[in-house]
């Protein structure tokens, strides 16, 4: 099977009915994408599939053939992306399990909306559950990242 992940085409030995999540974490070794609930509720396995945020636990590998997949590993190019740096600087990550999914959900938002307000951010991450931060610091980090991406002061 051929899967395009983070801009690279991979030839991978996997069943088309395996969950994309398992193929990413197993044969492809991309363990940044986390498994939380495994039933599409918690968002920790959020990836972008052709630019849209989806739960990798509900997508079958065969369904992702021919699509562009972006995982958290694809955000950083040499150094942390501004979005990631803002999560670090603003305390948006604590235990870290939800962080990859939060980053991808935030990336999906910021690609469409360059200056989201609090309500828009909260809606964009409504499918991502965090048990540590109380969400406010994540919202702050995403808002901060929007400013940095727009070329404003960090």
């Amino acid at each position: 099977m051929k899967l395009q992940v983070n801009g690279v085409m991979h030839e991978v030995e996997a069943s088309p009915t395996a969950r994309l999540l398992d193929v990413l974490r197993g044969p492809l070794g991309l363990t940044g994408t986390k498994e939380g609930c495994g039933e599409g509720e918690c968002g920790s396995c959020t990836i972008l599939l052709d630019g849209l945020p989806v739960n990798a636990c509900l997508v079958l590998a065969g369904q992702a053939e021919g699509a562009e997949i972006l995982t958290v590993e694809g955000l950083a190019a040499g150094q942390l992306a501004p979005l990631q740096q803002c999560f670090v600087d603003d305390g948006g990550a604590q235990c870290g399990i939800c962080t990859p999914g939060m980053l991808i959900a935030a990336e999906a938002l910021l690609r469409r909306n360059k200056a989201p307000d609090d309500a828009e951010i909260r809606e964009a991450i409504a499918g991502n559950i965090c048990r540590c931060t109380g969400y406010q610091r994540i919202v702050d980090a995403i808002k901060h990242a929007a400013v940095v991406r727009a070329g404003g002061a960090s």
Binding site: G40, P53, V54, N55, L58, A105, A108, A126, G127
Partner: peptide, 9 residues
């Protein structure tokens, strides 16, 4: 319907 990840699928 769910959140955005579910709405997208």
């Amino acid at each position: 319907v769910g959140a955005i990840q579910i709405q997208a699928r």
